[in-house]
Amino acid sequence: MSDKQLLHLVFGGELADLQSTEFMNVDELDIVGIYPNYAAAHNAWKAVSQKNVDNARMRYFIVHLHKFLDPENDS
């Protein structure tokens, strides 16, 4: 395998305040998925964000899981 696996999590939910990243209800977070690279995660983020474009409080994020799994390696 030539490409290094860099896991990314895509998730989102309704924000309590548009000026913060605090969610209204953590129990209702939408876990979209975990992806093997940033490009795949970005595609998933873009698709789910577009589906929720009419709700200004709904926000989706990409988390670089590989940075938590291997903090010494800043890839």
Rank of each mutant, 00 (worst) to 15 (best):
V53A: 15
E22G: 01
L15E: 00
K46V: 13
S49M: 00
N25Q: 10
S49I: 01
L6P: 06
H66N: 12
S49R: 08
W45E: 01
L7E: 14
Q50M: 13
V26S: 13
A16E: 15
T21I: 05
G33T: 00
P71E: 07
L7M: 14
A39W: 12
M1K: 11
Y35L: 06
D54M: 11
Y60R: 06
H64M: 09
F11I: 08
L6M: 13
Y60W: 03
M24E: 14
N55E: 10
K51I: 05
V32H: 05
D3G: 11
Q5D: 13
L15P: 00
D17S: 02
E22C: 00
L65P: 10
S75H: 01
A44T: 03
M24G: 00
D27K: 11
E22Q: 06
D17H: 00
K51C: 03
N52I: 12
K4H: 11
N73S: 13
S2C: 00
Y38K: 13
E14G: 01
R59A: 00
V63E: 13
S20K: 14
G13P: 00
P71M: 04
Y38P: 09
A39F: 14
V32Q: 04
A47C: 15
D3N: 08
A56W: 00
A56T: 08
S2E: 09
L69T: 03
A41D: 02
D74I: 07
Y38F: 14
D30R: 08
L69W: 04
N52T: 13
D74G: 08
F61H: 13
R59V: 00
M58V: 04
S75E: 14
A16F: 09
L29F: 11
S2T: 07
V63L: 13
Y38C: 11
F11M: 08
K4S: 12
S49W: 04
S2K: 07
V63Y: 11
R57S: 08
G13A: 13
D54W: 01
L69Y: 08
S75C: 05
V26M: 15
R57V: 00
V48E: 11
F23V: 08
L18E: 02
V32F: 09
L7C: 12
L69C: 05
H66T: 03
D74N: 15
D70V: 07
Q5R: 15
E14C: 04
E22W: 02
E14I: 02
L9Q: 01
